[in-house]
């Protein structure tokens, strides 16, 4: 049996930190059924004579968070559709490993190096949490499998606000009198999305008053109650509020307009050269061989072609953004550099 490693972790760099999107208490993870999976039989097994590979036992998808969050949703939706659509011969199990903003789950997967039956779902925190020094493992310890979908950030103001464009928001934010709420801690996703956009708009992101809340929902309630002046949250979270007309979005971080909120202009349209993806993908332990990676690339590409996937992702507000293993790996490296630059601007790196 391979064991989860619990080694020394250096304390976080002051002023930076992981995304904590699960609000309130650490949620329970009882829903996770621990499959009785024995240690992997080595990378050799499952490889056919023509060099292709197929899983020989149940596939386990780890959500490095509790049930009910974004990672859990992706893991469970993916697992269910893979089985329902008959894309896999083996069963697909979801395991929740909550804790330390994902680091506990990553340590668990990293402890299964070379095991091709242990996947995990991933998104920007896999870059941001290690950058803050709060994880033993970063994305280079894992094999990228595929990027699947993406979601974007919206920049919200109350319906009756004077602020009409992102430039106006940026100008207000620079004054320091204007507070912008977000759903995660300083140096994490929402903050990076705000700071990057402010920099692109030509203002100093360090002078903005960013107020971290426990989750985008809390940030939006505070905006509704007039306790903060603006908020930056995921598009999916804001759909209800935008529809009801309680709030207005002065910008979205997508390269092109998004269908679900087609009246919201992109930042790029407003001559603010910045995009921010809340990308979601799948990764595996390190040291997988080419045939194994090729199998999963193909599998997830097929999954995204199904009608059921299209329906689910439309419902969850995701946009397809498939990248294969190599592209995804390069994307991760580039994105990390971009985040580092933004965090340096705000003085968090």
């Amino acid at each position: 049996m391979l064991r989860m490693t619990k080694t020394h972790v250096s304390p976080g760099t002051p002023g930076s930190g992981p995304a904590r999107r699960t609000p309130g208490f650490r949620a329970a993870a009882v829903g996770a059924a621990l499959p009785l999976v024995l240690a992997a039989c080595g990378s050799g097994s499952g490889t056919a004579e023509d060099g292709t590979w197929a899983p020989t036992e149940a596939i386990e998808i780890t959500a490095p968070a509790a049930t009910g969050g974004g990672w859990d949703t992706l893991a469970r939706t993916g697992a269910r559709l893979l089985e329902e659509e008959g894309l896999v011969d083996q069963s697909v199990q979801v395991v929740n490993k909550p804790g330390a903003g994902g680091a506990i789950g990553w340590a668990y997967v990293a402890g299964h190096g070379g095991d091709p039956h242990k996947l995990f779902v991933t998104s920007p925190p896999v870059l941001l949490v290690p950058m803050a020094g709060n994880s033993d493992h970063d994305h280079e310890d894992f094999t990228p499998i595929a990027r699947l979908a993406t979601d974007y950030m919206v920049y919200l103001v109350p319906a009756d606000s004077d602020v009409e464009t992102f430039d106006e928001l940026a100008a207000q934010a620079e004054s320091g009198e204007f507070s912008v709420g977000g759903g995660s801690g300083p140096g994490s996703m929402d903050h990076v999305a705000l700071a990057g956009a402010l920099t692109a708009a030509g203002t100093d992101p360090a002078s903005a008053n960013y107020i971290p809340f426990d989750g985008g929902g809390e940030a939006m309630t505070s905006l509704l109650g007039g306790h903060v002046d603006a908020a930056v949250v995921g598009t999916g979270e804001a759909l209800g509020m935008l529809e009801s007309g309680d709030m207005r979005a002065v910008g979205i971080s997508s390269p092109e307009r998004v269908e679900a909120v087609s009246d919201v202009p992109t930042l790029v349209e407003q001559d603010v050269d910045f995009t921010f993806d809340i990308w979601r993908g799948v990764m595996a332990p390190g040291d997988l061989d080419g045939a194994q990676v090729a199998y999963y690339e193909e599998l997830f590409a097929e999954l995204m072609d199904t009608e059921a996937w299209q329906e689910e992702s439309a419902r969850l507000g995701w946009t397809d953004a498939y990248q294969d293993s190599e592209e995804f790996g390069a994307f991760l490296d580039d994105t990390r550099d971009e985040y580092a630059e933004i965090l340096t601007e705000v003085g968090l790196q």
């Binding site: 699960t22 609000p23 309130g24 208490f25 650490r26 949620a27 329970a28 509790a66 049930t67 009910g68 969050g69 859990d72 949703t73 469970r76 939706t77 989750g215 929902g217 809390e218 939006m220 309630t221 509704l224 999916g236 979270e237 759909l239 209800g240 509020m241 529809e243 009801s244 309680d246 419902r315 969850l316």
Partner: peptide, 27 residues
């Protein structure tokens, strides 16, 4: 509001989203 008031309702909200229901002002 579509806003969870506690850890429990946060899980409930997650379940609702997966079920295709978006709780919120228009629900």
């Amino acid at each position: 509001l579509g806003v969870p008031g506690s850890g429990t309702t946060a899980i409930l909200l997650g379940a609702l989203l997966v079920l295709g229901v978006t709780p919120g002002p228009t629900m």
